[in-house]
């Protein structure tokens, strides 16, 4: 990853260290650097690799050593699931279903590649999706629905409830706090 959460002056205002919650009112203060890069840079160092492996591994008898690019792809998938869940929580069922299908197709892609994948287009897609989400008003209901969507996917993949909730909360925080 070449991105850094400290790139750009806006990092000085990183809301993770403050109380500001951002859904629907944060402008993108970074020029030319996608929002998703910041979210990924924030999540990547602390996201549990075992959880990422569970998402990637289709045959549980296999053991993978994940390249960072694959972990990024897993994060993109989970963020997409998060956004779809968020939209569903707001009542945009049709839109949520469409994005849910896209997330599923990304998962298929991640699982079908052995060790590396081209994720540039998925990154752009997820960036658009996060920006779309942020146009909507803040809603605890939608946030809860978004986190549940992530938790359900992770538990289905074999994560414990605690592990899944922790991952969902990390995604929630990072999506909310990115500027």
């Amino acid at each position: 990853m070449s991105v850094s959460k400290n790139s750009g002056n806006c990092s000085l205002l990183h809301p993770q260290h403050g109380a500001q919650k951002i859904y629907g009112f944060a402008g993108d203060c970074r020029s030319g650097s996608p929002l998703i890069d910041e979210i990924i840079a924030e999540l990547l160092p602390r996201f549990d690799r075992a959880t990422a492996t569970l998402v990637v591994t289709q045959d549980p008898r296999e053991r993978r050593f994940l390249l960072e690019a694959v972990v990024v792809a897993v994060l993109l998938f989970l963020i997409q699931r998060y956004c779809a869940g968020f939209l569903k929580g707001l009542g945009f069922d049709q839109m949520a279903e469409g994005h849910g299908r896209k997330a599923t197709s990304l998962l298929t892609k991640i699982r079908s590649i052995r060790t590396q994948g081209d994720i540039a287009s998925e990154k752009e897609e997820t960036d658009r999706l996060v920006r779309e989400l942020r146009k909507h008003p803040a809603s605890e209901l939608a946030k809860g629905s978004a986190e549940r969507a992530v938790v359900e996917n992770l538990v289905e993949a074999g994560a414990t409830q605690e592990q899944a909730v922790s991952a969902a909360q990390q995604i929630s925080e990072s999506v909310a706090s990115a500027k």
């Binding site: 690799r49 591994t57 549980p60 053991r63 074999g158 414990t160």
Partner: peptide, 18 residues
């Protein structure tokens, strides 16, 4: 069986990384 194999995968991976 799949559920158990996935649990084993999870704990194996936890150990492998941590």
């Amino acid at each position: 069986q799949i559920e158990l194999e996935r649990i084993a995968l999870n704990v194996d991976e936890q150990a492998a990384y941590s």
